[in-house]
Design a protein around this nucleic acid. Structure first.
Lengths: 215, 215
DNA sequence: GTCTATACAAGGATAGAC
DNA sequence: GTCTATCCTTGTATAGAC
């Protein structure tokens, strides 16, 4: 049942548990996921879970905190890639942001954070500081660079930030909310939305403000 | 404890229950809200709740379905208000959308829909058809009118829709996720985001594409 | 329509053998 | 590090008196 890409098995069991638990939490929500169900998904007994994590809450915290760094590092690499021009960089960033937010486990956790925000505020704090804020900073860097180089126009930053992240987060949320629909991909198509969204953002940012790469 | 604007008390107890239950569900999530807590909030015994609703799920369904019409009707009135020009109409619509999505109970339900989407798919369906779709249609009408009158430019509709609703829904979600933060209003200010967002959308839509009402 | 009392299952968590 | 067995609380829901 194990098939990690990452070489040896340094921390084998614990990571397996986090992985299985994350999937269950994402599917059923925090409160509706029982330790029994978690144990079953891991192929072990409830009591054995408590050997690895002192409580359900601690296990959940581990699940949420697990993926920040991988996601953020992907964005940093795009920001620091000197082979890209400002516009290509932004397109790559959109690509990564959509993939992270819609498909990765961390990116899909927003509803879980909302569900537990009052009960476990520390998780919300960590999610905000370790994931949200860092993403925004990296994207802000990219805009700064584009403005400095003259490729991008200066526009209101608060509005721009919300117009970049808003549609992405909402698409992810919508796909969780309406996951049971047959028509999910037709109603909320990831690729189609990403392209249309990115084009419009670039239309706002481009200095030559005609309609260049209208698809 | 009763103080409705709507005249007499036709369906008194049931509405009180829905009101109190909605508040609790929004605060604690669906699964984490017990019938005991609900009963306590209503000032009655658990068993009495079951006289009004056959199950917790049925009560929840009532809570979600309760507010569609009021919200949608507000938008319809703005759409049909012939005293407004296209741009003023859009500004009014932004106003209403932010208020509905961030402050009204229906608007704040997205995380709850996500939490229960697999367990109670019928609620997600109703929320989508009764609330989301209708909002999108009304807004689409307004854009159509603006394009027809020559006030708005035609831009990609899929992208535009997501750039209008995305930031609004995400702001609402963020405010639920980070409700415990002292700095919530500073990090996610409703008025500031709405104004900046609306200005940028108008910048995209306006035919005279210079920078008219830059704040 | 509301109450008290209760049924019965499932929840999180622990003890202690192996 | 995993197991079986168990503790105690809480969950949803029902029965039946008033």
């Amino acid at each position: 049942m194990r098939n990690d890409a990452s070489g040896a098995s340094a921390v084998p069991r614990r990571d397996e548990i986090v992985r299985a638990a994350t999937a269950l939490f994402l599917e059923k929500g925090y409160a509706a996921t029982s330790m029994s169900a978690l144990a079953q998904a891991c192929g072990m007994q409830k009591a054995s879970l408590y050997h690895h994590f002192p409580s359900k809450e601690a296990l959940f915290v581990a699940c949420v905190n697990d993926g920040y760094d991988v996601a953020v590092r992907e964005l940093e690499q795009i920001r620091d890639d000197r082979t890209l021009d400002d516009e290509a960089r932004l397109r790559r960033a959109f690509d990564a942001l959509y993939r992270i937010t819609v498909e990765s486990t961390v990116g899909r956790m927003s509803p879980l954070i909302a569900e537990t925000s009052r009960q476990i505020p520390s998780v919300a704090r960590a999610f905000h500081d370790g994931f949200i804020t860092r993403q925004h900073e990296i994207l802000s860097d990219m805009i700064d660079a584009g403005v400095a180089s003259g490729a991008f126009r200066e526009v209101d930053r608060l509005g721009l930030e919300h117009m970049i992240f808003g549609p992405i987060v909402t698409l992810s949320l919508s796909r969780e909310m309406f996951a049971s629909f047959d028509s999910l991909d037709a109603l909320y198509p990831v690729d189609g939305v990403r392209e249309a969204h990115c084009d419009l953002i670039l239309k706002l940012l481009r200095v030559s403000s005609d309609e260049p790469t209208e698809r």
